[in-house]
Simulated scan of single mutants.
Amino acid sequence: MDWLQRMNQAIDYIEDNLENHIEDEQLAKIALCSVYQFQRMFSFVLEIPLSEYIRRRRLTLAAFDLKNKKNKVTDIALKYGYESPESFSRAFQNLHGLTPTSARDTGSQLTAYPRISFQMILKGVVGMNYRIEKRDAFQVIGLEDIYGIDNIANEQGVSIPEVWQNLCRNGEFDRLHQMVTGDWHSDGNFNKELGAVFAYDSYKFTSNTTFPYLIGCYRSGNSKVDGYTVVDVPASSWAVFSTLNDGNGSGNYDLRSLKHRIFSEWLQTSKYNILDGGNFEMYGTNKDGYEYCELWYRIGEKQ
C-alpha cells in the first residue's frame, strides 16, 4: 500500500469517528508512522493542524444537525465531544460567526468544511533538489524547550520565532556562538557557509502533542556545557533540502513552503522514509552574500 492510500485510509478513520473519540495511535498505525510524524505530515501537506481539521469537520456536521430543530443543542454538543453547551457554543461561534441558536434561523450563513482527500499532483515544473549526507554520531549543546505541535509555542505561550528574537536581544545567541571552539566545520564535516548556531528538534518523545526544540551548536572538544542541554545525535543518513534550491536565494525564503513540498511531493515519490529521531534547521550565507536555510531530515530506505 502506498503513501496516498495510507493517508486516505487515515482520513476514512477520522470521518467514521467524528462522533467518537479519535485515537492518535490508530491514525499512526494506519499511516505506518509515529503519532508525531503523522501530525507533522498532515500539517505540512494540508497547512492546517490535525486537531483543527477534526474540529472544523465536527462543527460542520453540527451545523447540519442544527437545521433539524428537533435536535437539542445539548445533545449535539455531546455528540461532537463538547463537555457543555457553553463550550460548544463558543467553538461554534468562532467558526461560523453566529450562535447555534441563530444557526437554526432560515437563511443563516454557515461555513462548511468538506472532507479532504490526498491526491497525487504531478507538477513537473520545479525540480525537488536534495542531497544525501551520511554522518557519524556527534553531540549538540544548547537551550531546550518543549513546544506544542498545534500552536508552535512553549508552556509560557512564547512562539519559536519569538524565542529566537529574545536570544538575539539578550545576548544568548552570541554566547552560544562563542562556545564553538576550533574548526567545528572541519571537525563535523559541515559546509563552511553554515553558521555556528542552528536548531535541532524532535530528537526525543515528549508527548503526542508536543516536541522538543533546541537552539544550539555543535559540541566541540572544549565546549562548556554548564547550563545547557547536551543531546546525542546518532549516526544517520540525512536528506538535506536548501532554500537556495527552492526560492530566490535572497534570504526571503519560505520554510513553510519548502516543508510543504518535502512532505507533499518528495516524500511521496522518493525511495526514503523520514524517520523519528531529530531534524536540523541550519542557517548559512553563500559566497554571493545570500542567506539561506538547510533542512536536514533523518531518513531510511522504504521497505
Rank of each mutant, 00 (worst) to 15 (best):
K79L: 07
F42H: 09
S51E: 15
D65C: 06
G97W: 05
L122R: 10
S84P: 01
S102D: 15
I121K: 13
Y36M: 07
D75T: 08
A103Q: 11
S43P: 00
Y130G: 07
Y53S: 10
A63Q: 02
R40Y: 09
F44I: 01
A112D: 05
K29G: 04
D105G: 01
A103P: 12
N68M: 03
L32Y: 03
I76K: 03
L122P: 04
A63H: 01
I76H: 05
D65V: 00
S51N: 14
R135P: 02
E86V: 08
S108N: 04
R40C: 00
R115Q: 13
R104N: 12
A91E: 06
L95A: 02
K79A: 07
T99R: 05
G107N: 13
S89H: 01
M128W: 00
R104W: 11
R135H: 07
A77T: 04
A137S: 15
M120F: 03
E47H: 07
S102E: 15
L59R: 00
K29S: 08
K69D: 04
I132P: 02
V125Q: 10
H96I: 03
I76A: 05
M128I: 11
K67S: 08
S87L: 07
G97R: 05
E83M: 11
L66M: 14
Q39K: 15
P49D: 10
P85R: 06
K79I: 00
F88L: 02
L78F: 03
S117I: 09
P49G: 11
P100M: 10
R115D: 09
E52F: 05
P49Y: 11
K123D: 15
N129H: 09
Q119M: 07
Y82N: 02
Q37M: 14
I48L: 14
F42Q: 02
L50W: 04
F138H: 14
A62M: 08
R104G: 11
T111M: 10
R131A: 00
E86I: 06
V45T: 14
F64K: 06
N94S: 07
R58S: 10
P85G: 10
L110F: 07
M41Q: 12
R55P: 00
V126K: 13
Y113V: 14
S102W: 02
R58N: 10
F118L: 05
M120I: 03
Y82A: 03
Q93W: 02
E52R: 14
S117K: 12
Y53V: 07
E52T: 15
A63I: 03
D75I: 01
Q139K: 13
R57M: 05
R115E: 14
S43K: 12
Y53R: 09
I116K: 05
P85D: 11
L61N: 12
R104D: 11
C33A: 05
S34V: 09
F92G: 01
L110H: 05
L98A: 05
R55K: 15
D65W: 02
S34P: 10
L50V: 06
Q139H: 09
S84N: 06
A103K: 07
